[in-house]
Write a protein that binds this DNA or RNA. Structure first.
Lengths: 221, 221
DNA sequence: AAATGTATTAAACAATTGTTCAAAAATAAT
DNA sequence: ATTATTTTTGAACAATTGTTTAATACATTT
């Protein structure tokens, strides 16, 4: 890293922190804060989260949050960028594989996406809120992990659509796929709080959808 | 009523500015605060909204907010309950109509729901956030407008499903319907900010989906 | 052991928050 | 016109916020 870069040297105090050597094997404080921030931000959102909440979750003095991450906002941006990557980067690889058919991609995405959401069910709502009022930094992360129009999957679909071998418009197909995969997780509190279903049934349904959604999508094709 | 209630269009940035100026001078202070609260809460959420923000939006002294509504939280509960009603009560009537077939209900719900969301595109995300950390009062409003398991529509579907005249499980059908209708609005900032599509294309696609979603759903049946 | 650098703590900071309250202004009732 | 009631205002409040800073504890290097 360019320690001596004059641009960085302007703010020497901040840079000392930013370029701090992590040779210490006991860097658990920074890690603990980051993972605590992930938990609290995801649970309560940016505005409802305090620096002291994060420190309490990490069981550390609250000054350490600013010591390691300089500000609440910078820490949030970090967490949000990770969340976006977690949400999108997985399906990005699948959809850009040149050796699989569109049908195979759909099968893989459905299983992978739902498996991921079963582990991180709050991620979609968290990211959607973050995107709504996003900084330039976050928008950049979005573009880099964008998968909706630039993927090889969509390219394959557009080719089929041009030949008349695909009924549905590619963008509608992607919308339907993402919608059916994601919204149940976003809206699950509504189902659970009203007593419509319980958590056990919800999980079972999501397991079913791993194989059913590909079938429904293929009916549209 | 319906003067200051959720007046905003799909292009929330432009419309928010346009409608912010022309406030009804004849509206009472209480009404002005309520409609201002609707706008600010829906835009920024509960925690990021201050009583002074609401008063500024209503162009009134900030003490009047507590004078008329006793507390920020009570005002928020009021707005949230209205939002839930706005979101769910419409489709509730359609789905409980004993004189229409399931197919007819699907047609009506798709048009009505998308028309509503084109006028109030921020409503789903706002309500989903509200449900996630909801009070008993709000949960009650949810149950009363619950439509997912108690509706006549689902009853019709379960009867067909029992007779083997419906392939898809009723609950999955409802999930798919609501998902395909709603998620594009929740996730639209992601599409817009990445430059995948612009607002004009988005609106056009939503118009298409009014008639296409019923077709796709019927393929699953 | 001494010196140096890093990690952690506690205290303090100004700014902002929701809420209250008494006085003032406006309106209604007598 | 005088009184009574309601509406509006501005100031004040205690609590909480993110951030900074100086002092302390710990670790590593010399």
């Amino acid at each position: 890293m360019e320690n001596g870069s004059y641009i960085c040297a302007v703010n020497s105090i901040d840079m000392a922190k930013a370029t701090r050597k992590k040779k210490d094997p006991d860097a658990s404080a920074e890690e603990k804060i980051l993972s605590a921030a992930r938990a609290v931000f995801t649970r309560n959102g940016y505005a409802a989260t305090t620096v002291r909440d994060i420190a309490a979750e990490a069981d550390l003095n609250f000054s350490l949050v600013n010591y390691y991450f300089r500000s609440k906002e910078k820490l949030y941006d970090l967490v949000m960028k990770d969340a976006i990557r977690q949400l999108l980067s997985g399906i990005k690889d699948v959809l850009n594989d040149v050796h699989t058919t569109p049908e195979e991609k759909i099968d893989l995405v459905c299983v992978g996406w739902i498996d991921m959401l079963l582990v991180h069910p709050d991620l979609p709502l968290f990211v959607m809120n973050g995107v709504a009022n996003s900084s330039n930094d976050i928008t950049k992360e979005l573009v880099e992990n964008n998968v909706f129009l630039t993927s090889y999957f969509v390219k394959q679909l557009m080719e089929l659509h041009g030949k008349g071998k695909l009924k549905i418009a590619p963008l509608h197909l992607v919308m339907n796929l993402v919608s059916m995969l994601t919204l149940p997780f976003v809206a699950r509190h509504l189902l659970l709080k009203t007593g419509a279903i319980d958590m056990k049934i919800f999980k079972a349904m999501m397991e079913e959808r791993k194989t059913q959604i590909p079938g429904w999508i293929k009916l549209m094709m």
